[in-house]
């Protein structure tokens, strides 16, 4: 085991662990945010730059600080490394910069976006964004397209995390969508009119950190905070059948995988509990599910009332 200090907390981890995962082992608010890294999807990370941290000392052997901020999701810890996340003004400033970049072309259509309330970009925008935009240019726009008959793609909202590409590569037999073009014009698309037809394609919706990929069986049906989540299971020959059903009264409005506080699908019995499209899109009849009990949701979101109120009260910037 090796020792790393993150925001003055000493953590022991296995060699090869990344800074982000070391922080997650410790938990709490020293954990950097991550929009593109997804621990259950190997090869993701490094792209969004929201997890940038300052390395104040590289290791015991070479205690020099690293000159640039590093992506904590893809930088392995060294013995004796000292990392600053929330204790670093530099991190705060630059992460704010990254959030601003992610928002310059974002439509800010939260009021009509199904992801609102559980959107990582919304959280980041609240924590780091400023109230006014400095972007005077015309925003980049794409028309929404269908990716298969159950998934809608709003490219306007996409932050190009590549997670859905990893899902297609790692969970489905063949990939028909990908990242096309480049730079500002890069987009997720199928290029030709093509449906993503695969039993596990719906997981793209669960891994999407924003509202770019949404469930067409749930679109515009309800705000997520009006629904009650229940842990549920069903007998399924395709997947574990362990899911969360989101209910209003006796009606199931949507089905998702069970996600942890980092928004990642949970590991159940040593397996990542991805769910199949049948369970996600087609089993809306409560009699098909065995409801285990209320699902505790980590109400990290800005829309969660408690947080919004306290944050607001304590934030002089917002009040002025």
């Amino acid at each position: 085991m090796i020792k790393v200090t993150i925001d003055d907390v000493e953590i022991e981890v296995a060699p090869g662990t990344t800074i982000l995962n070391a922080a997650r082992q410790a938990g709490g608010d020293l954990v950097p945010p991550a929009m593109c890294y997804y621990s259950k999807l190997p090869g993701t990370g490094g792209k969004c730059r929201t997890c940038l941290v300052e390395v104040a000392a590289g290791s015991t052997a070479d205690p020099r600080p690293m000159p640039k901020l590093v992506a904590s999701c893809s930088t392995p810890v060294m013995d004796g490394m000292i990392v600053k996340n929330k204790t670093s003004e530099r991190v705060h400033t630059n992460r704010g910069g990254v959030v601003e970049f992610l928002l310059v072309n974002h439509p800010l259509d939260c009021p009509i976006c199904d992801q609102a309330g559980e959107c990582h970009l919304q959280d980041l925008g609240y924590e780091h964004g400023s109230a006014k935009t400095r972007y005077r240019e015309e925003r980049r726009t794409f028309s929404p397209i269908d990716i298969g008959n159950k998934i809608k793609l709003h490219m306007n909202r996409c932050i190009l995390c590549y997670r859905c590409v990893a899902v297609a590569n790692q969970l489905t037999e063949k990939r028909v969508h990908g990242v096309l073009h480049r730079g500002e014009h890069a987009e997720i698309s199928t290029y030709i009119e093509n449906a993503i037809d695969n039993d596990f394609s719906g997981n793209m919706i669960d891994v999407c950190p924003v509202g770019a990929l949404t469930d067409k069986t749930f679109r515009f049906k309800s705000r997520v905070w009006f629904l009650k989540p229940y842990e549920a299971e069903c007998a399924c020959d395709k997947c574990s059948g362990k899911a969360v059903v989101w209910m209003f009264g006796n009606e199931i409005f949507r089905v998702t995988a069970r996600k942890d506080k980092y928004g990642e699908v949970e590991t159940i019995e040593d397996k990542t509990a991805w769910i199949c499209n049948d369970c996600r899109f087609d089993k809306k009849d409560p009699s098909k599910w065995n409801l285990i009990g209320p699902r505790k949701i980590d109400r990290h979101s800005v829309i969660s009332q408690g947080k919004y109120a306290t944050k607001n009260d304590n934030n002089p910037k917002l009040l002025s």
Binding site: E137, E138, R140, T141, F142, I145, E184, S189, I192, E193
Partner: peptide
């Protein structure tokens, strides 16, 4: 700026 690249017809 409209950045659409309309989906092409498969051939």
């Amino acid at each position: 700026m409209k950045a659409d690249h309309p989906q092409a017809v498969n051939e």
